[in-house]
């Protein structure tokens, strides 16, 4: 394992310590691995978080116009409820707090427990669950669809709404509308190495890629031979469009890198995605190409489409001072 670390036990705390030093607009609470805005405002507080290893998620999205607090767990593991509780307390200004949770068993349990604990302290808390990954079948019985890169756009829109002074119920409504209209699909080309494990969690052969792999290296839909950017765009978009009919609408498109895929390739992929949208009557109102929700040093990418109406488009275009999302 070749990594720029000191000790696998300390990667999260040392990363966040560095992050806070590099970004004076945030403060770091080491005992809870919480990153919060330095300047607090009287408004609905927005808290997100999850396992580490997805940088710049989630700390990179803390800033005016986006999140108030990001809570970090160990690598790929949800933050514990006591950490999330600390996050809720930091985000609370008396106007209520909205939790943006990605749909994984651990995250759901810990965020919900933290919500109960905060409510016992008299803080009004509500939550939404992001599940944008069309690689997984949605289900009310089992865990169901994962939350992946689309979460970043959810942060952005919820953040803009909260910044406008809207009530908790209003922020939740707009956030749920965003979640209902967002779909993502990813693929991976090489594995990632958890610092505490020291070797790859799975193997992809030289002539193999995995369509639909999750952002923790969870299994996808199928393994295929490497494909051209054009064929990949066809595959990923095909899965998205089969799940949600975006025809005739205005959209935001995100092409997200998983960690070690060069921006060159991400732009090539975006170019192929964009070409396929116009013939379907899909107009790209906003494009985002970069590393927004990564999986350590995994190679690969995901494509996200969000259908925009006037309200969502305005909120998406509103200013953001978050270190990893300037708008």
């Amino acid at each position: 394992m070749k990594k720029i670390i000191n000790n696998p036990d300390h990667v999260v705390s040392e990363m966040l310590e560095g992050f806070a030093k590099a970004n004076p607009s945030v403060v770091y609470f080491p005992e809870a691995e919480v990153i919060a805005r330095r300047e607090k405002k009287a408004k609905v507080g927005l808290v997100s978080g999850g396992g580490s290893g997805h940088e710049p998620a989630h700390a990179g999205y803390v800033g005016e116009g986006m999140l108030d607090v990001a809570v970090a767990g160990n690598v790929f593991a949800s933050p514990s409820a006591d950490r999330v509780l600390k996050g809720i307390q930091e985000a609370s200004s008396g106007k209520g707090v909205l939790l943006i949770i990605k749909n994984y068993s651990g995250d759901i349990m810990n965020f919900n427990l933290a919500k109960e604990l905060a409510e016992m302290e008299g803080i009004e808390v509500d939550s939404v669950v992001v599940k944008d990954d069309v690689a997984v079948k949605d289900s009310t019985y089992s865990t169901g669809r994962r939350g992946i890169a689309g979460t970043v756009l959810v942060h952005k829109i919820a953040g803009a709404k909260a910044e406008s002074g809207a009530s908790l119920a209003e922020v939740k409504r707009v956030t749920e509308k965003t979640i209902a209209n967002i779909r993502s699909m990813g693929m991976a080309m090489s594995p990632c190495i958890l610092p505490g494990v020291g070797k790859p969690g799975f193997v992809l052969g030289e002539n193999e890629i995995e369509i639909g792999m999750g952002i923790h290296g969870e299994p996808g839909v199928e393994r295929t031979a490497p494909q051209s950017a054009s064929a990949l765009a066809e595959t990923l978009l095909g899965k998205i469009l089969a799940d949600y009919d975006f025809r005739g609408s205005e959209v935001a498109v995100m092409v997200n890198g998983l960690g070690s895929t060069p921006l060159m390739e991400l732009h090539i992929l975006f170019n192929e995605v964009e070409k396929r949208l116009e013939p379907l009557g899909i107009k790209v109102r906003k494009a985002l190409v970069g590393n927004f929700m990564t999986s350590l040093e995994m190679a690969g990418a995901s494509v996200t489409l969000l259908k925009l109406d006037g309200e969502l488009a305005t909120l998406l275009a509103a200013p953001s001072a978050a270190p990893a999302f300037r708008a």
Binding site: A77, S78, A81, D82, G106, M109
Partner: peptide, 18 residues
């Protein structure tokens, strides 16, 4: 319970902690 919940994190932490 409290130490396991906060140190282990994830699903295992909250489940063993509870």
């Amino acid at each position: 319970g409290m130490l396991v919940m906060s140190t282990v994190g994830g699903s295992s932490g909250v489940l063993y902690g509870s």
